[in-house]
Design a protein around this nucleic acid. Structure first.
Lengths: 148, 148
DNA sequence: ATTATTTATATCGTGTGCGATGCAAATATA
DNA sequence: TATATTTGCATCGCACACGATATAAATAAT
């Protein structure tokens, strides 16, 4: 068997591992505020634009609503967001930041910097990261087009 | 608030999304053989070297044994691997491919090629992939060193 | 206006991931 | 040799992810 199956040749395994390890790097920083990484992603979308329906959040994060819904319910239970029925469209659930949810932005101010500097290394620098972004964005666009 | 929290600026979100989307690309190819992507990773390690203790598999995949153990039990239930107590060290569970587990290698022969070509695009080509591998390997090494 | 279809969200089931913890076998130490 | 520590694996609990499916509201078609 040629090297086709060799783990070392596989892009996906690297992405999968790198993603998990970076998420683990976020963990101690987020856990002290009772957050998980996906919840932090939701917060970032709401800090960018508050009062979004579930669907918009899911699309922004490229997740299914059946992933996001229970996640938002946990955040609601924690008092980080509210969920209320839309007025124009009664099917929509509009998600809004609470004061606590807003406040987390200040408390988490140093997180991107901390994680960012933990990642910097020989081949990953402010000069090379844009190229990395381009490749990852292209992969995402490519695969997103093939399905939804 | 400056762009610190902008989702678009975040490396982790890109890795997380790219990883999930590529895993989804594997899904139809693996599901028809009753496999998940993590199970496919286990198979790759065993195709490289059969008869490994749980710990070696976990280390190779950089996962915890409490993730790998139930995964292996499901694979055992599917008749893909066997698990038997080690002879030198009675604590170890040695995992071995069954005939079926070996046979899957032939059946899945075209998978790496198929997924690979689904990923190729403008900025991700046979010329640029090595550079991408270097960056991801560096990130993994960097973060691995910081903990385990 | 009635019916059919689409859309937004939710529920359910299965399979990871991983922190916390337990336990027995192996090893190190006294 | 007796005891302490480490190691390999496992169980438990919780939080994603996502395919499949359900339900009600909105929209399109007749």
């Amino acid at each position: 068997m040629d090297g086709r199956f060799k783990l070392d040749n596989q892009l996906c395994f690297r992405l999968y591992t790198a993603s998990r390890l970076i998420t683990q790097a976020y963990h101690p920083l987020l856990a002290q505020h009772g957050l998980t990484y996906p919840q932090y992603l939701v917060l970032m979308t709401l800090w960018e634009k508050d009062a979004q329906p579930v669907n918009d959040i899911a699309k922004r994060l490229m997740l299914e609503t059946n992933t996001v819904t229970p996640l938002l319910k946990r955040m609601e239970a924690e008092g980080i967001v509210t969920r209320s029925q839309g007025k124009k469209d009664a099917r929509q659930m509009i998600v809004r930041l609470t004061r606590k949810g807003h406040g987390l932005q200040t408390k988490l101010m140093s997180v991107p910097e901390t994680v960012g500097s933990a990642i910097l290394c020989e081949s990953v620098t402010p000069e090379t990261v844009p190229g990395l972004f381009t490749m990852l964005d292209d992969i995402i666009l490519q695969l997103k087009g093939k399905q939804g």
